[in-house]
Design a protein around this nucleic acid. Structure first.
Length: 880
RNA sequence: GGGCGCUUAGCUCAGCUGGUUCAGAGCAUCUGGUUUACACCCAGAGGGUCAGCGGUUCGAAUCCGUUAGCGCCCACCA
């Protein structure tokens, strides 16, 4: 069979993915095995795969595949999030391109459009995950708005309401004028913008007639001149002598000449602007608070869409930003505009629609967080829920200790409608269904004639996160009592997510877990970093700096991309994406492929004895493999997944390919002995299993080439090799052998001696650094014709040390004495200064008396080694 | 403004409870290579006052203090 010299992932990936799904390998049902569960952070149903998903889901797949191979009942639950604002915005957008305004539709009509949109786009991202190799149990795919998840959300709302945790109130909220909904604090991004500071004259009212200006005026500075129409006071600092004379006076709002009081409040910064602040309680959070303190009226001059309302009196119906420039002109004309300065300030933008947020008063539903937060805070602080890396604990604590009530209502249609039903008199009942609501209303009013028509359900829906915070419970239908699934799979094991949503999501899931299951929702949280571009910028659609993940998979193979993403991304660290990373991943896949090709190409003969060098190599690599497996286990325990990959990477590339295979490789067109061959395919099999979680496709492909497999057999269902004890000393000795071989290669290169030309080697054995039992390997790898142990130095040679053993290679051509001298002298100097530093310690009585015995002993060993080496070097120099 | 974290090779980062894992890895660089598995490769090499300063200690990349630079989170000045 001819096998291509380059691994071609395209040929294999789809084939194996289909094989895995057809055989139901991803499926999980509760059984007697230990469960290992991950719930996917549900991507937005509107989303397409980006590099962040690639990293995140690669890690989840590695964890789940490893667990599966370790014999656990691995269950990775996929799903999508309805993402109410983001999705609704997209649907509105699409309708608009079709000439339909949302306002012209009924709620039902709109929802039909939205569901249609979901059916068309909802599955895309999950299909893309399959290309990556994600081994999710697709039969469990959930959606935050499907029946089970929806009823869970409603149940929880009713329950929390009945517990007194949910209340309704007028609050200042972040209003998104484009989506026309409140958004949470976490969904507001503050950005620095180049804006202007407008200095405006407010004339002081005449004492006898507040509606008339006196001659005096004060100047206030504002970045938002359009909001003067909603001003209800001007405020100065009570300690500000400049404005003492204004106490108790009134001023006139420019243009509309409404008379407003001058008040005093410590909040005002005397240093900033003019020291005078205009107060617009309806449109600024601080002004709102001052307004409450001073009993000011609130004039809401904005409509929900960001245009000015009737209450503004001027520019009614025009957009706030259009008004800003218009009103500036008006103020200039009226003489109220003193000056305009350039100014940089921060403005809140909606994360969803990217339009400037308006602080706005409105009636919303809130969830009290304090009590819920308590157990969730403790769980993380005492490591019941472990964060990786742990430094996110601080951040978490800070937030949880200062947690604010959660505004859970959104003025949207796409989402879970708030299960609150109003009666004609404005009172309300809370119930899971219409029927229950009618019941409750009848009981409440004592009127048994009430029907559903007498009730009006709240128009708002719940915040998206009000469904995602239940995800680890709701995906197993955990709000239904007597449910085997939730009992078996919950709590889940690991959550892999981005630190950006630690509060949105992680914290709240932990709260919900304790509230509804009495325990944590997951044991470990692995925080991935943000994938950035080469210049360190966040990848974003608008910058266009994100590669298309599917294209990358096409070019480099899913295995290559997975390896590339992971290679330099320790937990919590941002990764800088470069194509060279996935290139490295692809190259590694190719290396594996070619190692396999080499092994596969050998003819096996059971008639020839195993060469000594092969016996040594097999024994060494068997131990090496165990050592590395122990290491890998340890790294996984610590969630150092990229380091675990690196360990396997070097194990395969350096140890297995460059050393082991080179040692056992038979001469050209010669067969290999059966014993070595069997050991080698055994090693390869182990290596493939270790690699499988990281590189599922190529390992499956090779595993099937390696031996005849039964139908329905798969590497992904085969057991992960378990580490056994190994000979540490053998490994150390072998490293010294490698060192000697490297020296010989270096000498060849320095002296321009081809590898084909065999050399002789003499060894003056010291305490350490030479082991004659390895000679067959030394001979083969060094291309030596003869190894001779000697008892004194050999003349006309180039020499080197490994530990205290000295090696000599005779040179046919004469030795360059000067060059050798220089080399030896440099080495001598190095050894002497080393000895000096060692002696400094050993001559220090306090070191000898206070350092542990072990440390002192190693220092003494260093001393002995160095002294022996110096002696030998001196002799060599003398000889030259 | 409040809080947290970072600074180790050209780049990206390991380095855990101070001492043989102590100055490391990968990539990049340089040199050599038609050794039939792989040039997506092989062999070899160079490269770092562990940000600066001070302290604790027999001993500091590691602990403490401090300065500088960078990053993140929270709150936000009109």
């Amino acid at each position: 069979m001819e096998i291509a010299s380059k691994y071609n992932p395209i040929d294999t990936e789809d084939k194996w993915y289909a094989y895995w799904t057809e055989n139901g390998f991803f499926k999980s049902v509760p059984d007697e095995r230990e469960p290992y569960t991950i719930v996917i952070p549900p991507p937005n149903v509107t989303g397409v795969l980006h590099m962040g998903h690639m990293l995140n889901n690669t890690i989840q797949d590695i964890l789940i595949r490893r667990a599966r191979m370790q014999g656990k009942n691995a269950c990775w639950v996929p799903g999508t999030d309805h993402a109410s604002i983001a999705t609704e915005a997209k649907v509105v957008e699409r309708l608009r391109t079709q000439g339909v305004e949302k306002s012209s539709l009924t709620r039902d009509m709109f929802m039909r459009h939205a569901w249609k949109w979901k059916e068309e786009h909802g599955g895309i991202i999950l299909e893309q995950l399959k290309k990556l190799g994600a081994s999710c149990d697709w039969s469990r795919t959930c959606f935050t708005m499907d029946n089970v998840r929806s009823s869970s959300v409603i149940k929880v709302f009713v329950d929390l309401f009945n517990k007194g945790c949910i209340y309704r109130g007028v609050r200042m909220v972040n209003w998104d004028p484009k989506a026309q909904t409140a958004v949470s604090d976490e969904e507001v991004n503050y950005k620095e913008v180049q804006s202007k500071l407008y200095y405006l004259k407010y004339y002081v009212s005449r004492d006898d007639n507040p509606a008339e200006p006196s001659g005096a005026y004060i100047v206030i500075a504002t970045t938002r001149p359009e909001t003067i129409l909603g001003d209800t006071a001007v405020c100065v600092n009570p300690n500000d002598d400049r404005f003492r004379h204004l106490a108790g006076k009134r001023v006139l709002v420019p243009l509309i000449n409404r008379s407003i009081p001058v008040i005093e409040d410590d909040y005002v910064d005397m240093e900033f602007g003019t020291g005078c602040l205009k107060i617009t309680p309806a449109h600024d959070i601080n002004d709102y608070e001052i307004g409450i303190r001073h009993n000011l009226e609130s004039i809401d001059i904005l409509n929900n869409d960001g245009t000015l309302s009737e209450k503004a009196a001027l520019f009614v119906g025009e957009d706030r930003f259009a008004v800003r420039s218009k009103i500036t002109e008006s103020l200039r004309e009226s003489g109220n505009l003193v000056k305009v300065e350039d100014y940089v300030n921060k403005v809140g933008f909606s994360e969803r629609t990217d339009v400037p947020i308006e602080p706005k008063l409105s009636m919303q539903w809130f969830l009290k967080m304090k009590e819920l937060a308590k157990p969730a805070l403790d769980a993380v602080m005492n490591d019941e829920v472990k964060f990786h890396p742990s430094n996110f604990k601080n951040l978490y604590r800070h937030w949880m200790e200062n947690v604010k009530d959660w505004c859970i209502s959104r003025q949207l249609w796409w989402g879970h409608r708030i299960p609150v039903y109003y009666l004609a008199d404005g009172s309300f009942v809370v119930a899971e269904t219409d029927a229950e609501a009618v019941n409750a209303a009848r009981i409440k009013t004592g009127n048994n004639e009430l029907t559903v028509a007498d009730l009006r359900q709240d128009e708002d829906v719940l915040d998206t996160w009000a469904s995602s915070w239940l995800w680890p419970v709701s995906v197993f239908d955990g709000f239904n009592p007597d449910n085997r699934e939730i009992d078996y799979y919950y709590p889940t094991n690991d959550l892999v997510t981005a630190p950006e949503i630690i509060f949105f999501w992680v914290a709240r899931m932990i709260m919900a877990g304790y509230e509804y299951r009495g325990t944590f929702p997951f044991r470990n949280v692995y925080f991935t970093g943000i994938v950035r571009d080469e210049q360190g910028r966040k990848m974003s659609k608008s910058l266009g700096n994100s590669p298309d993940p599917l294209l990358l998979i096409e070019q480099y193979g899913a295995d290559g991309v997975r390896v590339g993403m992971l290679l330099c991304s320790p937990a919590g660290n941002d990764i800088r994406y470069k194509d060279s990373l996935v290139e490295q991943g692809r190259n590694f896949a190719n290396k594996i492929w070619n190692a396999f090709r080499l092994v596969k190409s050998w003819k096996v003969s059971n008639d020839i004895p195993q060469p000594e060098s092969s016996t040594i190599a097999v024994n060494w690599f068997a131990n090496r493999l165990q050592h590395e497996m122990r290491q890998i286990d340890d790294l996984f325990d610590k969630y150092r997944i990229s380091e675990a990959l690196m360990a396997i990477y070097t194990l395969f590339w350096d140890e297995f390919s460059s050393w082991y295979l080179e040692i056992i490789k038979p001469a050209y067109q010669q067969p290999i002995d059966g014993k070595t061959y069997a050991a080698t395919t055994g090693f390869l099999d182990d290596l493939l299993r270790l690699l499988h979680p990281f590189m599922p496709f190529i390992t499956e492909e090779i595993w099937h080439h390696l031996a005849k497999r039964k139908a329905g057999e798969s590497i992904m269902m085969s057991p992960m090799p378990q580490p056994k004890p190994f000979d540490e000393q053998l490994l150390q000795q072998f490293e010294k052998l490698k060192e000697a071989i490297t020296f010989i290669r270096t000498i060849r290169k320095d002296k321009g001696i081809s590898f084909r030309e065999t050399l002789e080697l003499f060894v003056l054995k010291g305490d350490d650094g030479y082991n004659a039992t390895f000679n067959p390997v030394l001979e083969k790898m060094g291309a030596l014709s003869l190894i001779t142990e000697v008892s004194s130095k050999v003349e006309n040679t180039v020499s080197f040390f490994v530990k205290s053993s000295e090696y000599f290679i005779p040179m046919a051509s004469s030795i360059n004495v000067e060059e050798e001298m220089a080399k030896l002298n440099a080495e001598l100097q190095h050894a002497e200064s080393f000895l000096e530093s060692v002696m400094k310690k050993l001559n220090n009585e306090r070191f000898v008396s206070s350092a542990p015995e072990k440390v002192v002993a190693t220092e003494r060993q260093k001393q002995a080694d160095a002294e022996a080496k110096i002696k030998a070097l001196r002799e060599s120099i003398a000889k030259l």
